[in-house]
């Protein structure tokens, strides 16, 4: 029997405590322990980006982070983007630009795009494509995603 560890962290703005096995990834804990299933498992080895979350504001693949590592730290998942007051401009833009089809990569895309706009509020298309190269999408061909990020950036600046 593996002994579980107690972890305290801030997840989507709320102080949270959870028990996890020492080898469990942040992705597993988000999904299986905290019922935050927005972050998706696509590869579990850091190659698809579907599990992207922000860890202390930094973009990470949550499948490559141990849950026990987030003690005292801050995590933002796709569930933390919208509030009851409304959607995040990126979410609104993804809807308006039809930047999703199956939607499986969308949570990771949104988080990655947020991390980009947090650093660079006015990225070029080339910068958007470079930044999002760690997030695979098999449905859209990326064009509408790039447009959505560009449109959201413009809107957030205004």
């Amino acid at each position: 029997m593996i002994k579980k560890v107690l972890v305290s962290a801030t997840i989507n703005g709320e102080s949270t405590e959870f028990l996890c096995e020492p080898q469990q990834s942040l992705l597993e804990v988000l999904r299986d322990v905290l019922n935050l299933t927005g972050a998706k498992e696509g590869c579990n080895d850091g190659n698809c980006g579907a599990c992207s979350v922000l860890l202390d504001g930094r973009l990470v693949n949550s499948c490559l982070v141990l849950a026990a590592e987030i003690e005292g730290r801050t995590v933002t998942t796709v569930e933390g983007l919208a509030s009851w007051e409304g959607l995040h401009p990126l979410q609104q833009s993804f809807i308006e630009q039809d930047a999703l089809q199956c939607g499986y990569c969308t949570p990771g895309m949104l988080i990655a795009a947020k991390a980009l706009l947090d650093r660079n509020p006015d990225p070029t298309d080339e910068e958007i494509r470079t930044w999002l190269a760690g997030n695979l999408c098999r449905c859209t061909g990326y064009d509408k995603i790039v447009r959505a990020v560009r449109a959201a950036a413009r809107q957030m600046k205004d």
Binding site: R31, T37, G38, K40, V78, L87, I95, T106, P107, L110
Partner: peptide, 21 residues
């Protein structure tokens, strides 16, 4: 028009195969 399934997908609430609880 916006696709009818878009809102649930962008807020991370849409349930996929692995998300069955």
């Amino acid at each position: 028009p916006p696709r009818v399934d878009a809102a649930e997908k962008v807020i991370g609430r849409a349930k996929y195969g692995m998300d069955a609880q």
